[in-house]
Design a protein around this nucleic acid. Structure first.
Lengths: 159, 159
DNA sequence: TAATAGTTGAATTTCTTTTACAATTACTAA
DNA sequence: TTAGTAATTGTAAAAGAAATTCAACTATTA
């Protein structure tokens, strides 16, 4: 078997796909080609993404599936804990991977609109505190800090 | 001057109104009756709110102003730091007061959809850390924990 | 008091997301 | 392997939020 085939094989066994398949079957749903294409594409994006970006990436690769299918697949991926809504901006929702990512916060510059990620041990501590103290079973978090980045502060847009 | 008059007077000097007025004038904008009505109503709501709720509250009080005015006023209130977007749910944005409120997190139950607030000293510590370490000037934060509340866990919806 | 510039409401538009429906297809069990 | 069934798809339409256009109005300034 040629090497390239091996590579492709490896790509087919993304843990995300397996988790999705398990979820789909547990729910009595169907693992369709459309869903597979969408999920694979999402996990090739290594950044925040939105429906339009995902749709255009697929179109550019010649995959002609409808936006309706994307809109229908996203809640499934959220439900099985693979992705989550991160923030609503420019009139639509933005998503990010969850599986394999540590809980983290986003710092957003209100001037240049850049978003940076950072982790802090205290985020987990707070989660644990809430779980134990309030009796919640936590499945996700969104943490966003808003302000102005050093570059924009330097450029004297703001003082 | 009768006591009731004093009470009303006091209500007129809400610090939020003064902050809004200052902002409006600093920007060369106008403090109109519509804006005043909207801002006063917002600060009579002591909870998260959305455009529709605000609009209906005003309607029920016989204040007939347009949703367009609400949509136009909210960004002003966000810009001067009086309110912020908290979360996007049910297809629209929800807001909360910022002025006079300590930074806090929201815990949302994905089953009963209840939202609880809590504070934690570590939230401020993280803010300070980001400010100092990354050189940001921070103006706000959103912190949302998602999961299942003890009541819903008990009801065996989930195990 | 007139001129200027910001604001309002109503209606319209834009855009995101959801949904209805008929055709199609994945899965199940014989 | 092959029906039978129930879920899924794409298309188009619908629903809904938010932004915008525009003429009438109004606060502020000169």
């Amino acid at each position: 078997m040629p090497k390239t085939k091996d590579k492709n094989k490896a790509a087919e066994h993304l843990p995300e796909i397996e988790i999705f398949k398990d979820y789909i079957r547990r729910k009595g749903l169907r693992f369709t080609p459309e869903r597979e294409i969408i999920v694979r594409e999402i996990f090739e994006i290594h950044d925040h993404f939105d429906v339009d970006e995902l749709y255009l990436r697929l179109r550019n690769k010649g995959k002609k599936l409808s936006k309706a299918s994307i809109y229908r697949t996203l809640p499934l991926l959220i439900d099985c804990g693979l992705i989550q809504e991160v923030y609503h901006e420019d009139g639509h929702m933005h998503y990010e991977h969850v599986y394999g990512h540590e809980p983290h916060a986003h710092v957003r510059c209100l001037e240049c609109r850049k978003v940076e990620e950072f982790t802090d041990q205290r985020i987990k501590e707070i989660e644990e505190h809430i779980s134990k103290e309030f009796g919640y079973r936590l499945t996700g978090l969104r943490f966003e800090l808003l302000g102005y980045c050093p570059d924009c502060l330097k450029k004297q847009y703001l003082s």
